[in-house]
Nucleic acid binder design. Structure first.
Length: 307
DNA sequence: GTCCAGGGTGGCG
DNA sequence: CGCCACCATGGA
């Protein structure tokens, strides 16, 4: 076990970043159990990621870490990173979030979300994120994290995230204990894993335009517009992706309806999804996905819903 | 008991 | 296009 201190190079709110619905592995690992978003007795929050076991704790501008190993293997770039380098990679510290704050101050709604400053979009592993968000349909953050925990438990004692080969070879019956809303989600993750082992290269989508990458993803069974945007934003560096779930939809219709000339329909139509998404993308470019995350956190706070 | 979570698909008018 | 039904859950 290695321990150390890392000087945070840009603004960060560690706890909110790790528990705001973009990552599902952070919490407290006990014997045969996992408690999402819970800290250990020393105030560290833990995750199994990139074939390592990492605990983090923030004190002002410092990140204290404990890790099983000093090295993290990043499969999508086929490189091993030392812990400092890894933290810069994972939290995208090369992106100067103060530029985002300047933008947010000018917006009537986003300025209120500045109270959550320090939320960053994480750079996560594409296959894991794809499977994770395939679990996410009409599901809760808590249950999604439980799905990820349980499927990792089936794969290895160390709780590493399964390989595509492992999931592809599972039978549906072996996955029915996962708390997904719809059984069809189980078929989707097995199908997706088969695509990957047969040569579908998620990471190569990064070379495409946003439009083309999104198009490729939604052509896959079980992945629609929203899950595609989550995969692009949370694992493939498409920071201009703007996923719209029910919370984002509500906050946009409440505060931006006039500006966007929106008329509320029974459900969010493809036309409106595209309209809203494009509006924020054109306005905020490579910060659109980050803006979306601040809106998401803001809209999930019950006391702020009134506006 | 009810309501709702980071949805997607297929089908009909 | 918009709307609908349907889909093996679990917590508040």
């Amino acid at each position: 076990m290695v321990e150390g201190k890392f000087k945070i190079p840009n603004d960060l709110n560690l706890y909110t970043t790790l528990t705001c619905g973009q990552a599902f592995r952070w919490g407290l690992y006990e014997e045969g159990n996992f408690k999402y978003a819970k800290l250990d007795k020393d105030g560290f929050i833990w995750a199994i990621l990139y074939n390592n076991f990492l605990g983090l704790k923030q004190e002002k501008d410092n990140l204290y870490y404990k890790a099983l190993s000093e090295y993290f293997y990043i499969p999508q770039i086929k490189k091993t990173l030392k812990i400092d380098e890894f933290l810069n990679f994972y939290f995208k510290f090369d992106k100067d979030i103060y530029q985002l704050y300047k933008i947010m101050e000018k917006d009537k709604v986003l300025k209120y979300a500045l109270s959550y400053r320090g939320i960053r979009i994480l750079r996560q592993e594409p296959f894991e994120i794809s499977i994770t968000f395939l679990f996410s349909a009409q599901n809760t953050v808590h249950n999604i994290s439980k799905c990820v925990y349980l499927i990792s438990k089936k794969f290895s004692k160390e709780l590493y995230f399964p390989t595509p080969e492992f999931i592809a070879n599972l039978k549906v019956e072996e996955l029915l204990d996962l708390p997904v809303r719809f059984k069809e989600r189980i078929y989707a993750i097995i199908n997706f894993s088969n695509l990957v082992i047969n040569g579908f290269d998620l990471y190569s989508l990064r070379h495409l335009s946003y439009e083309n990458a999104h198009q490729k993803l939604i052509s896959i069974k079980g992945i629609g517009r929203k899950i595609a945007d989550c995969i692009l934003l949370f694992s493939l560096d498409f920071d201009m992706a703007f996923p719209i779930d029910v919370h984002i939809k509500n906050v946009v219709f409440k505060f931006y309806a006039d500006e966007l000339k929106l008329r509320e329909n029974k459900s969010l139509t493809d036309k409106d999804y595209r309209l809203i998404s494009e509006f924020f993308r054109k306005k905020y470019l490579d910060w659109a996905g980050w803006v979306q995350q601040y809106l998401y956190v803001l809209s999930r706070k019950p006391d702020l819903k009134g506006g």
